[in-house]
Design a protein around this nucleic acid. Structure first.
Lengths: 229, 229
DNA sequence: CGACCATTTGATATGGATCAAGCGATGTGG
DNA sequence: CCACATCGCTTGATCCATATCAAATGGTCG
C-alpha cells in the first residue's frame, strides 16, 4: 500500500521510443498526474453519484468520505458491492454503462474524471494503460475476495469484514465505521439483526469491543482471523 | 459474443504514430495474433493446470474442454470461481501469483502463453494493452454477476446458473453440462443435495427437463428468468 | 454380473431470516 | 431545560430454507 512517487511523464508526453517493461513498473498514474484532469465534487450523505445503467462517461476517485456501490434486485433487496474509501477509484468500466449504482455514505468529496480523457491518454501512454489494467485487476481481486466471504457463515463474514476494514482504516486496532448496520448487512448478504447479533457474540468472546455502534475495537485479531477461515 | 476479424497488425509492429482511440476499437488481440505466441497443451480430466499462490508466469486460453478455477478454504470447503469454456481466457493476473487454482474438468486443450511476452507486447502496442484491460474487465463483470447470484435463494442460483450456461453453450435450448453436481454446488455455494433437489423442483414445474444428469433442456426460459430475480 | 461412483430422495437438524419488542442516542419544539 | 418523537441498533421468539446425515437408485466399466 505504500505510495510510489508519481511518475513524471509530462502530461501529454507520448511514450518514449523504448518503452519500459509493461508489467514491471510500479505506477501511480491515476493517483499522480491524471488527477489533475479531474474536478473534485462534493456529494452529500446518501446522494447518488451515478445510477446503474447510466453511461459511464466518468471515472471517480474518493478524496474524502465513503461511497457505496450497489445494485437493487427486482424484489427490492440491495446488494452493496463495495465500500470506497479515500484513494479508491470506482466506476471504472470498459463497457459503456455503469454496472452498479454509487452513493455517498457520508458527506464526501469525489474526483470526477472524464473517461474519454483517460482512455485517449492510455492510447498514447502505455504507463497509463497499465495503470487502468492494474486498477481493474485490483477491483477484480477485491470482488473475488468478497465472493469468498459470501459462501461463509455469518461469523466468518463479519470477522472477515472487520479485518478488511481494519486493514483499510484502522488506527491502532480501533475502527470508526462510516456505514450503518444496514449497509454492512447488505454488503455481507445478511440481515441487520444477524450482523448485530454476531457483533454481540464477538464481543462476548472478547474478540472485539463495541464502545458505541459506529466504533469497533479489535481485541483479538488472531481469534478473528481464525473465524475468517 | 460474435468474433471480430483478427486485427492485422504485424506481430511485432509498433503502434502507429497516430494511435486509434483507446476504448473505441473492438479488439481481438488475444484471440488473434497473440495466440500464435502460445503453445497448446493437453490436460487430462481433473489435472491441475496451476495452483493458487504459484507464480503467474503464464496466461491461459481454453481451446477445447472445460476448466474450473477454485480455492480451497481452510476447513476443506471448495469454492469454484469460474467455469472456463473454449475461448475463455483465465489465469490473467496483474499480481505475481495466481489467486485461484485451475484444473481441467474434462480432458482439455489449453493455450499457454508466456505472460512476459504479452506484457512486453502490451508495452509497445496499445491495442494489446487495451485487450488485456478488456479481458480483465470482462472477468470482473463476471465475478460481480456471480457475487449477485450468491446472495439469492437456491432456486434463483440454480436458475441463474442454467441461464448463464445456456447463453454460453446451449445448442437449441439443450445444455450438455461438462461439470458434476459437486462442481455446480461448489460454484453456487450450495450442497449437491440442494442442487439436485432444486433441479427436481424445476423439472416438476416444467421449467426444465433432465433427460440424463449431464443434460438439461430449458423448457421455459421465462420461468427461469423470473426466478433469476 | 457386480463393484463403484454420481445422483437422487428421504428424514432431521440448524443457522439465519423474519416478526416483534425494547432501548439508547440524537434532535426538536414547547 | 426537559418531554417526546425519531431513528438506528439490539434483543427475543419463532419459522423456514438449506445443511446434514442416511439410504436408495441408476449409470458405467471392468
Amino acid at each position: 500500500m505504500s505510495m510510489q512517487p508519481a511518475i513524471q511523464n509530462g502530461f501529454f508526453q507520448r511514450s518514449t521510443a523504448r518503452p519500459a517493461p509493461f508489467a514491471a513498473v510500479p505506477s501511480n498514474a491515476l493517483g499522480g498526474q491524471i488527477e489533475l484532469m479531474g474536478a473534485p465534487l462534493p456529494f452529500g450523505r446518501n446522494e447518488e453519484i451515478y445510477g446503474e445503467g447510466e453511461p459511464a462517461d466518468y471515472f471517480y476517485k474518493v478524496v474524502s468520505g465513503t461511497v457505496r456501490t450497489y445494485k437493487i434486485l427486482s424484489d427490492g433487496r440491495r446488494q452493496i458491492g463495495a465500500f470506497c474509501l479515500p484513494g479508491d477509484v470506482f466506476g471504472l468500466e470498459v463497457a459503456e454503462e455503469h454496472t452498479f449504482s454509487a452513493e455517498a455514505i457520508t458527506d464526501s468529496t469525489v474526483l470526477v474524471i472524464k473517461r474519454s480523457a483517460i482512455t485517449a491518454l492510455a492510447a498514447r501512454d502505455n504507463e497509463v494503460a497499465r495503470e487502468l489494467w492494474a486498477l481493474t485487476a485490483r477491483e477484480l481481486h477485491r470482488a473475488q475476495g468478497h465472493l469468498m466471504l459470501l459462501v461463509k457463515t455469518a461469523q466468518e463474514r463479519v470477522a472477515g469484514f472487520l479485518l478488511e476494514m481494519a486493514e483499510r482504516i484502522a488506527a491502532d486496532n480501533e475502527i470508526e465505521l462510516p456505514m450503518s448496520r444496514q449497509d454492512i448487512a447488505d454488503h455481507l448478504g445478511l440481515t441487520i439483526e444477524t450482523v448485530s447479533r454476531t457483533l454481540t457474540q464477538l464481543t462476548t468472546v472478547a474478540a472485539i469491543a463495541v464502545p458505541n455502534s459506529r466504533r469497533i475495537v479489535l481485541r483479538n485479531r488472531a481469534a478473528l482471523s481464525r473465524l475468517n477461515a
